[in-house]
Every structure is written in structure tokens, then in C-alpha cells.
Design a protein around this nucleic acid. Structure first.
Lengths: 214, 214, 214, 214
DNA sequence: GATTAATCGAGACGGTACGTCACGTCTTCTC
DNA sequence: GAGAAGACGTGACGTACCGTCTCGATTAATC
């Protein structure tokens, strides 16, 4: 029979069955609202608890840190949005595949630009990204649950393009996608320069055809 | 005649001429040491002051926040390193220009990989980058004083390559450089994947020649 | 119906029922000990908290100032002493009434001299008295809770003497008592001159019979 | 020849001859003004220096503490007042001696009541008295320079009364005076009860003729 | 009148304590 | 037994003053 590995002495896990769904929702809402209003650094566990009308212990019972709460709250936000836009019989996330790789990429990246500039997403995701830089555990989860799944969609699209002969077969899709995704990410995260439709279009063009003369 | 805008009631700026150089050095050293030892989040102003043998007020007199201190400490660290490696009659920072663009870029990026993996640089620069994401003022200064100057070197090298015909003349160097710099930066910062010599070599190849068949 | 006046925006009063009795005792003990050891001025809230093994906030939650803490600690000390010396069926504080007013007063005042010279009482009560001079709120409470109750005992004894014909009926006891109490208090407080049994005996004699020839 | 006793290693006394009279006056004025405005406790050396337009060191050079400054400022204030009211050929301080002891005492004590209720004197003298309770050195000087000289005048007047047969010859004047002076002082200092002309009149009557039936 | 040395205004410095905020734990009472 | 409430010990915050020290710039006594 499977045995939980001993590990460090751990709290007896609280009984998930008795967990208050209402409190969890209230905590998510309060956390996101506060991060939006005062920023991540000035958001406190006490503040979330007070705003959610919840005891502090209820937060500490189920989450390990402010970052955990916000990460889950953000994931939950994404899930809700996905549920709303879901269309039956179709992967809600998959990239379009019209056969024109450049056009498809530009379309998706332009949508990404819109999303990155939407203030409702900007503050919490920037905050989470920052926390992830410094807190390895949060970072791992952030990348695994939010970033990599999105990048995997590009990998899929690029593989499809390889099958269609639009990308050289020896190209590593996981690396190739970074040519246009990472610059956009860096400009947005680090505010090194503004982002725009024209910018992502240029990125796609450069990435597909290189910058050296043909 | 130019008029200083009134702004909010501000403290009279302290007299820079009477500033204690010894204290400043001790604060830089203490700040960098603490960030290296316990991380940015657990580094406190009180800790820096105690370690530096300095009153807290001396820190608050000259810097506005923990991030400010660390940013200046880090800039100072870079300046010192530059002074040490400086060679007369030669810009200490300029990229090599042997005529072979791919080789030059790979050389520099491999050196960057080494630096990014050096723990003495990793913790403080990651911490600063994180702070910059969330604190716009720190972010602006971080980009302006640390990031952009480095990127400018790539711009210069790419322009030289354009003159030599190794890069298409219609390519924007400021964007093109992101094709290989941003992916490396993101992998390192967000730990999305490991970095290596082979990886940066691949990035340069993809960026120069594109991923579409020629 | 009585209405609490609005007043300035006040903290919601903490819940007295959940107050830690252990902390309160520890704070009293620490405060009195520190005042005795280093004096009132060098006694700090931080010092009291540290000595009591208590958070500063626990002090600020229940008291408004160093003076408040010490006043209550001193009152508590008095209460404890009273409880210890209490005899059933007898007011523990009442002055003796043997019929000989002069003798009774001298007896009590000699005991007061002993107490005033006892270093355990001297430092904190002198400190409180000083604080009361300058801080009206502390002063009011000091007088109301410590001084007046003691003086009232003299009033009672003098009234009894008036009934017995040992004091003129038109004499105001509340003023008359000051003839021997205030001089002693001033000598002790302001160190204008030493105090002794002989001194208080003289005061009683002068006060009872006047200084003019009979 | 007199030799300065070695004592603890002392600062070389600053040269009094070169002392700036203007600064001294400004410091006195600032100290008294601040004590009047914000009270003794909230009066700071830095505040006095700033208000006086003087360097902090100038205060520390000539005085040892806030209490010292205020004591001297107050003494100086008294000296100035005395100079103004001085009449040639007459001790400006001596008590009146009309032959009627009771009347003379009442007259002087009524004037004292007026002074004690004058807010210009009340705040600083109360502050000094409080400081003197707790700081023995200040207390000693306060008593020696301010209190005792005044009390001595009563001693003189009582001795004169003894010679005139208005006071019993075996009465100690230094004690007797406390019968009416100390009660007034205590009521004022400790705010135990209001003071008035009627009150001091009563004190004098009680003190002269006692409270026992004649 | 020039020289020189101490005092002066100013304020940076290493410190201590302030009073506040939030942490994460614990306890009590309610549903 | 989970949850709301909140007191607790802890520790950092940013501020106010402490008393010392170091700067030129007066300024008063000496040359």
C-alpha cells in the first residue's frame, strides 16, 4: 500500500471536505481586489482577511503565504474566464491554424498585447511574476501552471508548421517560440520599451526569416 | 528662466559635500552581503544599518527605500568591476567586432551565461529585477542605468553589421537584439528553462537566419 | 437616554475579557522594577516590554503612556499590600482614634515618614508625583486615586475630634489637615529639608495649638 | 594656593570671556517660549537651538541638560523682573512688616496666589519643579536658588514677630512657615484643590492660632 | 591692522526609543 | 471541527532627538 513519505513533521492536513467554499471565494475576491487597489506589496494577509470577512486562521489553514493565495486566486480567475469562453468540441486554448503561420502568430500575439495592457490583468500578473522571480516555489508553480501551458500551444503550432514545411525540421520549437514570446514578455514585464501590434508583427517577421540577408 | 516645480513639501536635501564616504561604502557592502546571504525579502534596513555599523537615519537620509540602496550598491559594484578591467584606449564595454557577427554574439552571450550563473551576481540582480517589476521607479532606473546601456552595445554591433552587409538594412537593431537577448533573460529570470552555451548558440543561429526554410 | 459623545475617531476598545492576566502582572512587575533600578526617565516602554517578556503592542493596547502603566502598577501594588494587611471587620485604612488627637496624628505621621523613606516606595511615588505635575491627566488620577483617599482619612479623624471637642467646630478639616500633611509632603518631594519623627511631632503641635502665644 | 581637585577627566572649560551674549539671550527666550507653547516634555534641545538660530553645540557647550537651560532661563527671567521693580535703598524682596503679622502674611500670600495663577509663570515653574523632583541635581539648585531664598524671607518676618511677642519664642520659624506655605504649594503643584485669597487667609489664621480650642 | 584661536551656525553621524503595522500562532466562542 | 474574531510575542518600519563630531565663517583677544 502506498505510504506517504515521511518528510518534515507536517501539520495534519485539515479536512478538505469541511472547507467553506464561500470563504474561499471571498478570499480570492478580496485578494485580487486588494492587489489591484494598493498593489501586491501593500496587500496583507490581515487586509485580505478583513476584507473577506474571514478569520486570519482560515487563510493560514489553507495557504502558506500571500503569494500562494494570490497565485490560486489568479489561477481561479483564469479558470472562470476559460469556462465562460469555452466552446463545445474545441480546445479553448489552442492557437488558430489557418496554414499561414505568420498570420496566425500575429493574430495571437496581438490578442496577447491587448490582454497585457488590460489593467485588470496587469497588476496581479506582474505582481505574481515578480514574486516568482524571488520566491522559487511560487516561481515554479507560476511557470508550471500559467506560463508553460501557454507556451506549449506555440510548440504545438510550430510542430504543425514543421509538418507543413513552413518551419525547418531541425528547428527546436520550444526554443523558436521564445524568439517572439520572450521579447514581448520582457518589454511588458520590465517596461524596457512599449509594446504594440506593429512591434509583435515585426518580431514574427524577424523570427521567421531572420535578420541576415537571404 | 527655468523654475523648479513646487511639488509636494519636500525635506531640504542634505548636504552632499559632508557625506561620509566610509558609511556609504559600508552600507553598500552590508546591503550586498545581506542580500546574498538571506535574500532580498529578508534583508532589512535595520539589518543593513546594523551590519554597516551605521545609524538607520544615515540610510534614510540618502536613500528612499531598500530598493534604492540595493540598486546603487549594485551599480557601484558594476562601476568598480569596470574600473578594474578597464584597458586604456578602449571602451571597456564595447562588444567585439571581428567581422563574424554570429561568432561575436555567441562569444558575448556565452560570457553573459557565465555571469548569470555566478551566484555573486545572481541573487542581487534577480532581486533588483523583481523589485523593478513592481516598483515602477526602481524599474525605470534599473532599466535606464543597467539594462539599456548593455543593450545599446548590441545596437552598435548590429549597426556595424548592417554597414558590413551582414544584416539587412531595413532591420531595426533595437528590436532585432531582443531575439537573442530576451529569451536568455526570460529563461534566467523566470527559470522557465536552463541556460547554456548551446542554448545561446542556437538563439543566435535562429535569430540570424530565421526559422522558416530559406 | 444617555448617549456616548462622538469625540475624535477612536480605536475600537479591545476586548477586556480576553486580556492576559499573566501579561498584565508581568508588566506591572517589570515597570516597578525598572523604575526602581534606573529611575522613571530612563524607564522605557521597550524596556518594560522586554523585561516582562511581552510585545510592545500589548502595552500600547491597554495603556496610553508610560505614566499610565506606572500609575496602575503602583495602584495595584497598594491594593496588594492592603489585601495582605486587611483585618476582618475593620477598615484597613482608617486612622487610629484613641481620643488623644495629637498622639494619633503623630503615630500615623511617623508611620508615613517610615514609608516615605522606604526606597521601594520612594522612587516610583516620587516619579509618579513628578509626572502628575506636568501631565494633568496623570495628575488628576494620581490625586483622585492615591492622594485624596488618604487625606479623607484625616478628614474623618478630624471630624471625630470636632465631635469630641478637641478641635474647634468652625475649623474646616480639609484645610486643617494640610497644616501637617503638606509640609511633610513638600519636604519629602522637593527635598527642601530632611524629615524625621521629631519634625512631624512638631508639625502636629504647631498645627493644633498655633504659633501665636496662647 | 587653591588647586582644582582632580576629579573625573573633565572638558577644558570653555572660555567664558568669548561667550556670545546674543546667543545666550536667544536660547533663554527660545527655551521659555517653547516650554510655554508645547510644555516641558515636548521641548527639545534641537527645538531650542533651531528657534534660537543657534547650533546645538552652543547649547551643549554651556549647559548640561534641558533642565539646566530652563533653570537658568527661569532664574534670568526672575532677575530681570527684580531689576525692573527694584527700589533704591530697599531690599526688593523683603516681606512687609507693619506689626500685624497676620495681615502681613495674608498680603504676601495673596500676591503669591496671583503669581501662581499667572500662566506666564505657571508652565515653566511647574515644569522645573517636576524636573527637580526626579533629577536631584536640578532639584537641589531649584530649591537653593529659587525656593529657599523666598522661604528665608518668611523666617526673617517670623523672627521679627517673635521679637515683638506675636509668636511664641520657642517656635522654629523654618518649620512654622511651612504651615501656610506648604499647603499652598501643594494645592498648586499637585492640583489637589483650588487656591484663593480666602484659602490663604484661612491658612494663616489656622497656623497662627491652631485648630484646637483655645 | 594682521594674526590666531576659540566660538559660532550648521548639520551629518551612530545611536536609542518612539508608536505603528503586519506577521504567524494561539485561544475563545459560535455555528 | 471549521470558522470569525482578535489578543499575543515578535520584529521591522520610518521618525524624532539624543549627544558627539566635523566643517567653514565669524569674532574677539593678542601680537
Amino acid at each position: 500500500m502506498a505510504q506517504t513519505p515521511a518528510g518534515p513533521p507536517r501539520k495534519p492536513a485539515p479536512d478538505t471536505a469541511r472547507r467553506s467554499e464561500k470563504s474561499r471565494r471571498a478570499i480570492y475576491d478580496a485578494a485580487l481586489a486588494l492587489v489591484g487597489e494598493v498593489g501586491y506589496a501593500r496587500t496583507t494577509i490581515e487586509g485580505i482577511a478583513a476584507r473577506a470577512g474571514v478569520g486570519k486562521q482560515t487563510i493560514y489553514r489553507w495557504w502558506g503565504s500571500k503569494g500562494d493565495v494570490l497565485l490560486e486566486a489568479f489561477l481561479d480567475l483564469g479558470d472562470q474566464a476559460a469556462d465562460r469562453t469555452a466552446q463545445p468540441g474545441r480546445d479553448p486554448h489552442a492557437l488558430p491554424d489557418t496554414g499561414d503561420l505568420a498570420a496566425d502568430l500575429k493574430l495571437v500575439l496581438r490578442a496577447t498585447v491587448d490582454e497585457l495592457l488590460d489593467p485588470r490583468f496587469e497588476v496581479p500578473s506582474r505582481a505574481l511574476a515578480a514574486e516568482g522571480l524571488v520566491n522559487e516555489q511560487i516561481g515554479k508553480e507560476f511557470v508550471a501552471k500559467l506560463l508553460e501551458p501557454s507556451l506549449q500551444l506555440y510548440v504545438d503550432r510550430l510542430r504543425s508548421a514543421q509538418r507543413a514545411g513552413a518551419v525547418r525540421p531541425d528547428v527546436e520549437p520550444r526554443i523558436a517560440l521564445e524568439l517572439f514570446v520572450s521579447p514581448l514578455a520582457q518589454r511588458w514585464l520590465q517596461r524596457t520599451a512599449p509594446i504594440s501590434y506593429a512591434y509583435v508583427d515585426t518580431l514574427v517577421d524577424y523570427a521567421l526569416y531572420g535578420i541576415a540577408p537571404r
